[in-house]
Design a binder for these strands. Sequence first.
DNA 1: TCCATTGTTTCGAGTCTCGAAGCAAAACGC
DNA 2: GCGTTTTGCTTCGAGACTCGAAACAATGGA
Lengths: 144, 144
Amino acid sequence: MSGHELTAAVTATYEIWMRTNALIMEALAGHRLTPATFQALWAIDPDEPPPSMKVMAERLYCNAPNLTFITNQLTERGLVERAVDPSDRRSRVLVMTAKGREVRAELLRTTLEKTPLGVLSDSELRQLAGLLSRVVPLEGPAAG
Amino acid sequence: MSGHELTAAVTATYEIWMRTNALIMEALAGHRLTPATFQALWAIDPDEPPPSMKVMAERLYCNAPNLTFITNQLTERGLVERAVDPSDRRSRVLVMTAKGREVRAELLRTTLEKTPLGVLSDSELRQLAGLLSRVVPLEGPAAG
DNA sequence: TCCATTGTTTCGAGTCTCGAAGCAAAACGC
DNA sequence: GCGTTTTGCTTCGAGACTCGAAACAATGGA
């Protein structure tokens, strides 16, 4: 009967996610961002080829209209730009601007500073990351 | 430089949370529930004294008007009922109905079946729960 | 009693998410 | 090549979620 540990783990996941959001809210607001738009910014690794809208929608677990909305928020704030994919002119890729890189890096730093996961020691973190990598095949949002 | 593991852990937390939600969405919809309303239902342990609105707002990291909205959703669906707290007649406590108990138990079961965390072995789960309990002091939503 | 505080609700606004429909480009079949 | 289907994105309309400001009743303290 491992039910209790599983329940605790699911609950803890929720807690950590919500607390992290609460703790970085102020920093996000400083750039007129929200959890949803910040996740989108996070999900674009500026050192990788720019992802298409379709890929982004998969990463963020949302549908196409929603991603159009989120992308508009980011472009209005000057953090990303749409560009036509030369290999498929239907597709739009999201290119991060210089400002986008700065804001993303700053907010990532803030997140790592504030996340409750920071209380763990290096060895605990290694252990945790090892376990979680078994759970999620590590192909989602860029892991910096 | 533990930055990488910390980043990976934060990302994994997000991934697990989003995936779990996606996987139980259908089951939630069967009861006209959403992630937000289900979290509220989850956060009420039917074997504990009914929590006040204020306590629930803290558990769900939302403010009072939001919790009024969520509570209305749950009462309209016959899952919880408001009751006046005899010890403080300003306060409303959320009492789960019989139907609420059933639905909560069923959806909790579904969640544990579907969560990606289920791929871990018992010993891995114990390890994970141990680490996460150091991160979140275990006082949030009832851990059933 | 008077007044400040607390717990909740109402109101109005803004954000987020979705399904259906529309459009252009690509891919397919002939 | 040409018509048809599929794909990627956008627009539109609606509903769900969240918040701050203001209102209200009950509490507690001077």
